[in-house]
């Protein structure tokens, strides 16, 4: 079995790489695929917190690289989903502890046992980024509809294109606020796609549920009613090759919203 190695990157910090990794990983595992998440943000690890696995980590990526344990010993199984594993980063070291070749061999080993190897990339374009993308053949570029994040995503896409091993890369637009888009206070998803001229894999609406899910250590895809959770499940389906239409995030406002509610109540479409 040869699994797919997908790196989740952004360039800019704080756009939701780690949240995306945790949610896509969980959604893929829920669909029955075996998934391993690798946190390469050594020294600033967060993925374990988002998955609520912080208290289970004994060995880390650095321990595997420095041969203090076997690779399988360092894999932490998810609480709910046995298909999902986490290879955590060390908190007490820095990015120089693992180099590109070492991560590549680890990815190759994991590819044999798992359908998906998702690599959570650190922010920036330095060592950590180069290490993270070393084993990957696909990439998901996370951005938000802000000029700074789009500019950084553009830079990242340039770097990914320069790397031959990366066969495909797709864009995920995170934290979209439909009401701001409607009032032209925020770039629309179409604008972002146009600027970056890149295939889209998902649109994630801004969702306050993300904050609570992060604090509880439970990915939001476990809550199927949340808009962000639904969007992440759709992203996972698209990764699997399914054709899923993008969620209509343009909520009607004011009188239109009221009208729409009345219409749906009476079962009238359009």
């Amino acid at each position: 079995m040869t699994g797919r190695v997908i790196v989740i990157t952004s360039g800019k910090g704080g756009v939701g790489k780690t949240t995306t990794s945790a949610n896509i990983g969980t959604a893929l595992a829920k669909n029955g695929a075996s998934v391993v998440l690798i946190d390469t943000d050594i020294g600033l690890r967060n993925l374990d917190l988002l998955l609520g696995l912080e208290n289970r980590i004994v060995y880390t990526l650095v321990d595997v690289v420095e041969e203090r344990c076997k690779l399988k010993q360092a894999l932490v199984k998810d609480k709910k989903n046995p298909n999902l594993c986490l290879l955590a980063a060390a908190q007490t070291r820095d990015k120089s502890a693992v180099d590109a070749d070492q991560l590549k061999t680890i990815c190759e080993q994991l590819q044999e046992d798992f359908d998906f190897v998702l690599v959570d990339c650190p922010a920036g374009i330095e060592e950590g980024f180069k290490t993270a993308i070393s084993g990957a053949s696909e990439a998901i570029v996370v951005t938000t509809p802000e000029m700074s994040a789009v500019r950084d995503a553009d830079r990242i896409i340039g770097l990914l294109e320069a790397k031959e091993e990366i066969k495909s890369y797709r864009l995920l637009v995170n934290r979209v606020r439909p009401n701001l888009v409607q009032t032209n206070d925020m770039m629309s998803v179409d604008d972002v796609v146009e600027i970056l001229s890149c295939d889209l894999i998902g649109i994630i609406p801004e969702d306050t549920g993300i904050i609570t899910s992060t604090n509880r250590g439970e990915p939001i895809v476990n809550d199927e009613n949340s808009p962000a959770g639904k969007a992440y499940i759709n992203v996972a389906k698209r990764i699997n090759g399914e054709e899923v239409p993008f969620l209509d995030i343009n909520e009607p406002k004011g009188f239109d919203a009221f009208l729409a509610k009345v219409k749906t109540f009476f079962g009238i479409k359009g």
Binding site: V58, K72, Q73, K77
Partner: peptide
């Protein structure tokens, strides 16, 4: 006993 299987099935 730090067996691999044990580690995976805490």
């Amino acid at each position: 006993d730090k067996d691999i299987t044990e580690m995976q099935n805490w």
